Simulated assay, not measured.
Amino acid sequence: MQYRKLGKTGLETSVIGLGTDQFYGEWGQNFNQSEVDKIIEKAHSFGINFIDTAECYGDHLSESFIGNAIKNRDDWIIATKFGHKYHGFQKQRTYHFDVKGIEEQLENSLKALKTDYIDFYQYHSPTNDDFFNKEVWEFLKQKKDEGKIHHIGIALVASAVTDGDLFQLENAESANVDMFQIVYNRINKLAEEKVFPFCEKHNFGVLARIPLARGHLSGKYSPETNFASNDRRSFENKDDTIRQLKFVQHLKDNEVPQNVNMAQWALAWCLKNPVVSAVIPGMKNIEQVEINAKAADLEL
């Protein structure tokens, strides 16, 4: 495993992190505690030390699986999020970016994760109005002073590449934010235009979210694939999905070296950019853990 510093935090994170969106059952597979235990144990054995989760991956369900699975809290850097509340399949949500809502979410996350502190507490895809709330800034600073939060981050929305969306980056230091998540993969490279240069200039940590483009860049699917009804991807625009999978086929034929696993290639492609501290793919089983972890050593 390789490790990189996460911006000005100074924390050394494994370049392959463990995304846990899948644990609450919207990707065609339901999980139980035993399965999650094995995934996290396998990730640890490969040197992965970063876990990303959220309050609305189920009603703190993903966090609960993680809290029950972790044996030694000091072995892990844990990031979770706030702002949404889960109400059922397909991420039916209400939004809670007010102090009262955030405080409730924080306490529930700490309880679910079975921990006294969260390494990175992240705004979950906020609008500019959600983010720019000095009362919330002060509340989060207070929780940092209490030791319940060590660092504050923002999981930016997928379109966070316009001048208007840069507002959150430009006001990050005022809000004590020092790391960002942004969608980045071989299909969606928009972060390179404005977000990455800004983060590099100001030494903000960067996590690449959705690095496998919701599994499309694993190379397992064709344009003819029909996703199951309990898989979120079955609800996405069919034309967009077909277009993406045709492009993936083009990549497989023209860019992926022979005898190289495409998922490993896609993760290593993200990590070629030195601004990226880590990628956070989801992993449904221990075989995927091993494939993804080995991407850390793949030189393109």
Results as ranks from 00 to 15, higher is better:
E138F: 05
A266W: 00
F132S: 10
S159P: 13
G28H: 03
Q22V: 13
Y24H: 14
E41W: 14
L156C: 05
P274T: 14
D59V: 15
L169W: 02
C270D: 00
Y86E: 03
P281L: 01
N72W: 09
D178V: 10
L140S: 13
D21Q: 11
T162M: 01
F198V: 06
N254I: 01
N230Q: 10
A295K: 01
L110T: 07
E290W: 08
D253N: 11
F132E: 12
G25V: 09
Y57L: 05
L217T: 00
D239P: 03
N259H: 14
F120Y: 03
S45D: 15
G17W: 00
F120Q: 02
E170G: 07
E192F: 13
E63A: 10
A54C: 04
I149Q: 06
C199G: 11
F23S: 08
N188S: 11
G205D: 07
I182S: 07
P274Q: 12
I40C: 10
V136T: 06
C56G: 02
L6A: 09
Y121T: 08
N30Y: 14
P211E: 03
A112F: 07
E255T: 01
L271S: 04
R73Y: 04
T115C: 05
K85G: 06
Y121L: 11
N237Y: 08
I118C: 02
Y123K: 05
N261E: 12
D240G: 02
L156H: 06
